[in-house]
Design a protein around this nucleic acid. Structure first.
Lengths: 337, 337
DNA sequence: GCTGGCACTCCGTGGTCTCAAGTGCTAATT
DNA sequence: AATTAGCACTTGAGACCACGGAGTGCCAGC
């Protein structure tokens, strides 16, 4: 049904359309690619491809344009991820290695990705749940207030204020702090809940209210922060692209962090790329966009995801290469910190 | 030169143009506003206004459009800040009071401001330099690494990793921590540098290298964080507005945090509103936009700024009211935390 | 199965026309 | 001196049309 030449034609259509942004016709195709057959033959192939739904024409007597399904086939079978050039790789490395803290790593990553791909970049903060407790600090802020600071081995710091307590003594705080740290340091965050239940028993009865308050806030922060933070960059690149009509919808979708995180999808390990094309994205406003995402993390421990959002008409091999490379380097940088 | 009627005409032109987005002519003007004179008279006034540079026509035989200078006069002399309606105020209050930590306060504020004004909202994080030290924590992360966490009374937490140390003993860290806290708690951040110089003397010679490393990182974080964080929201509102041409430039400018912070300008105390119209903004890409900003803070202590960015053709009285109201409420919320 | 030829279909472009809205000017009026 | 009515003039927006180009589908021949 789809012989080799038809696939070659599809590939050529995708490539041409991506670079010219104009529907591509049979004549133009044979001119630019040496396919060794005449336009008429190509036309016949095009008819097949159109029947199968890989390409479409905007209107009769216009050239063909790839459909979502066409891009999908292109990505799955007709293209290979394009590795970055050596200078590009060096640039990534030096750009990222200058970062001093987690915030800056994330900020630089998003800038980098946006510049490299000329698309909108999205980077999710490394998740808490996949890291382990490095230290818990309790700071008395006043007679009735305590601040809890949770530090993880990925360098993330999470703070909460606990209010409305009565009679917080420094000793009680001190004591609770050391109990907490003894019990929790080195534990995976996912294991924290079950360990926590054993703690009140180790605390003098007088200080139980404090302990309970702190523990419940701790649990809260573990759960809540799962709806995590993402950072966006390169939105200016949207304006340059074709879709001026749906632009509003796209921008709106991008502002919904929750949506965005869901869309970064189920990318598993760092070497794995996820590509979502057009209507494959569940969110209405992003039906004209594609999302390429990858997981990143330390070693083979996935921590979070990153990716880019662009028009379905995008340079898939190049963008995929950039996303993959950046994901890997971020992992390295995180490991090195 | 500019008698009362001419000012009234200017005001009417601004109001009409803002609401219709079309150049306004003499006829339309007398229809919509009861000015009590004929179109011909209005035309004469318009000529004066145009000579003075307050209005302009896109081309001969089109209606008039306010210039930057016209908007400026309107804002300065012809309009009054429009207070929010009671339900709007209640909405702000309930929306903001649900926030639990600083990140969330900022995130909610930016959303709120964007929704209220239907423009792009910008909120700067409360600055470090205007707050004072609540606690300094040192956490040994390994044989050669220490993390420093600086907590301020505005609830801001700042962490840095110090690397490449030799032989960090727990006692040394403990000791340094208590010395630091004894010396610095309660100090304004601006006063920290001079106090810091007295510290090494209080440390055993063996631990001086550690102390120096920590102190220099501390100083660094005081200086660096002055280039502060801002959060953007409501960029989707840009797409709905007129300027599709310069949209790219605007988005680009908005991504430059440094630019943005500078543009939030010299708004002083919370009751003070700053309005920058069109070319008054130094940044090239924002010549077609106006920025309305206000300071916010606890009591009369200004901590940071917030504002909105929109087309020069915007509803100044309404937007100014919203910005002012939000700035005030954020201050209250911060004080309550 | 491939190709050349041919008739047909559209879109985009550019030219021309008209219409509506708005202006500036002048002369008359208050 | 300020205001008004009247009028001729300008200009962009929109409608309409003609046309050229790029592309298609199909058919007959290789």
């Amino acid at each position: 049904m789809l012989d080799d030449r038809k696939l070659a034609v599809l590939r050529a259509i995708v490539e041409d359309y991506v670079s010219t942004n104009e529907p591509v016709g049979s004549k133009a195709l044979v001119d630019r690619h040496s396919l060794g057959v005449s336009p008429a033959t190509i036309r016949n192939d095009m008819v097949s491809l159109e029947e199968e739904g890989y390409i479409a024409q905007p209107h009769t007597s216009a050239g063909r344009v790839p459909t979502d399904k066409g891009y999908r086939l292109f990505v799955d079978r007709l293209s290979t991820v394009k590795p970055l050039s050596r200078p590009e790789r060096r640039a990534i490395e030096t750009f990222l290695s200058g970062a001093v803290d987690l915030d800056e790593i994330v900020a630089r990553t998003v800038r980098l990705l946006a510049q490299l791909t000329r698309q909108v970049a999205v980077v999710q903060y490394p998740s808490l749940t996949r890291s382990c407790v490095q230290h818990i600090e309790l700071v008395p802020l006043g007679p009735q207030r305590v601040m809890m600071v949770l530090i993880t081995d990925t360098g993330r710091v999470d703070q909460r204020v606990i209010d409305g307590l009565l009679s917080v003594t420094d000793e009680a705080v001190e004591n609770l702090r050391s109990v907490l740290n003894r019990a929790l340091i080195g534990k995976w965050l996912t294991d924290v809940p079950q360990t926590v239940s054993t703690i009140p028993a180790q605390i003098p009865a007088d200080d139980r209210p404090l302990a309970h308050a702190v523990l419940s806030v701790l649990m809260e922060s573990l759960v809540e922060k799962r709806e995590e933070k993402v950072v966006l960059g390169g939105t200016a690149n949207l304006a340059a692209k074709g879709f001026s009509t749906s632009l509003r919808d796209v921008l709106e979708a991008l502002e919904e962090n929750v949506v965005l995180i869901r869309l970064l999808g189920e990318a598993a390990d760092p070497s794995m790329l996820t590509v979502r094309i057009g209507a494959e994205n569940s969110h209405e406003g992003l039906h004209t966009t594609s999302i390429i995402s990858a997981g990143y993390g330390i070693g083979d421990q996935p921590l979070a995801k990153l990716g880019v959002v662009g028009p379905t008409r995008m340079d898939y091999p190049g963008t995929m290469g950039a996303v993959r490379a950046v994901a890997r380097y971020v992992g390295q940088i995180l490991a090195g910190q």
